[in-house]
């Protein structure tokens, strides 16, 4: 399988250009911190849509390429998970390069479970040099959940410290150790927030910590419990956080009631029984799942401070364009010049 060259990274070209001569008129400063399409779409006030692609447990790019083709015009960004649930998969950097090659806009997920500060920073440099412009900083599921439960974990730094690291490289041109990074990676920085984790009252304060640490956008844990999410958003608004960060509501389109029963057992997820009953009672559970996802997106659009949705249709990526269309969010907006 051939790997097409990723698009030439814009920033690197710019930084390679000759510095303006002293006394020359200064160019107007860009209002943007990155080359990310997501940053521009949020700035335009668009309701942004991203979707997740789970890389395979193999060395094949086929599925990623196919999903990228399906998602590139139906969504504004495509997340590539980083060894999700601690199962060895094709790396998120390589997967992101495949998405770039298909014309997508990858959001490279990075967990702090498997790499220390040396490897994380090295991969940030490498990923940026390959044309990746967005990253999502995560703690990562504990390795005991995965297929190598006897492995050693790293956790040299935590997800909040990773946010600080990515921001430090971008805004201060500094590595974590304080040394200069002359040609620095300028990522649009994402973080996760889980309104369904405990202690609930601390979740908004943790969100605030992530903003302070450098988060530009947030993708939340999958929402099923609307009441709790609305309380979370109300608390976030009270502290003005919705104006400091672009919050994207996480949505999992469900195929079946059985899948929801499973999700209910995952720590940090809440799936109300009445919602499971609704899918269970449907003649066509998959189609009811699509309807539910559409309804959830529409509910999210009504909540002040929700600036977009993040669709996690793992193994069901082909349904995403239909869901986005039914939610009235197609065609996706273009970046204005």
């Amino acid at each position: 399988m051939s790997v097409a060259e990723p698009k030439a990274p814009v920033a690197e070209k710019a930084s390679g250009a000759a510095a303006p001569k002293e006394g020359a008129p200064k160019k107007a400063e860009s209002p943007f911190r990155t080359d990310s399409k997501l940053e521009r779409l949020f700035a335009q006030g668009e309701f942004v849509v991203t979707a997740e692609i789970g890389p395979p447990k193999s060395a094949s790019s086929k599925g990623i390429r196919e999903n990228a083709k399906i998602l590139k015009d139906a969504t504004d960004g495509q997340n590539l998970t980083d060894n999700q649930t601690a199962i060895v998969r094709l790396s998120s950097i390589a997967a992101a390069v495949h998405v770039l090659a298909e014309g997508g806009n990858p959001v490279m997920q990075m967990t702090v479970r498997d790499r220390n500060r040396i490897a994380l920073q090295s991969d940030l440099l490498g990923a940026y040099s390959l044309g990746i412009r967005n990253t999502l900083c995560l703690s990562g599921d504990h390795q005991s959940f995965g297929n190598h439960p006897t492995s050693k974990n790293v956790y040299d730094i935590d997800s909040i410290q990773l946010l600080q690291t990515v921001k430090g490289l971008r805004d201060d041109k500094k590595f974590l150790c304080g040394e200069d990074c002359k040609i620095n990676p300028k990522f649009y920085i994402g973080a996760a927030a889980n309104p369904f984790g405990d202690p609930f009252e601390f979740r908004v304060l943790r969100l605030e910590k992530k903003i302070k640490a450098g988060a530009d956008f947030i993708q939340t844990q999958a929402i099923f419990d609307l009441e709790r999410f609305e309380r979370f958003m109300a608390m976030a608004r009270e502290r003005g956080l919705h104006k400091k960060v672009n919050i994207m509501a996480g949505i999992i389109p469900v195929k079946s009631a059985k899948a929801m029963e499973y999700m209910k057992t995952v720590p940090g997820m809440i799936v109300p029984d009445e919602m499971i009953a609704r899918i269970k009672g449907a003649a066509d559970q998959a189609s009811a799942g699509v309807d539910l996802a559409v309804e959830m997106i529409q509910r999210m659009r009504q909540i002040e401070g929700v600036r977009g949705v993040h669709l996690m249709a793992v193994g069901w990526e082909e349904k995403v364009p239909e869901i986005v269309e039914k939610a009235g969010l197609l065609p996706r907006p273009k970046v204005k010049e």
């Binding site: 703690s139 909040i160 984790g197 943790r206 720590p267």
Partner: peptide, 10 residues
């Protein structure tokens, strides 16, 4: 974690 809890606290 030095800045916890993570999202898995339940």
């Amino acid at each position: 974690l030095l800045n916890g809890p993570c999202g898995g606290s339940h």
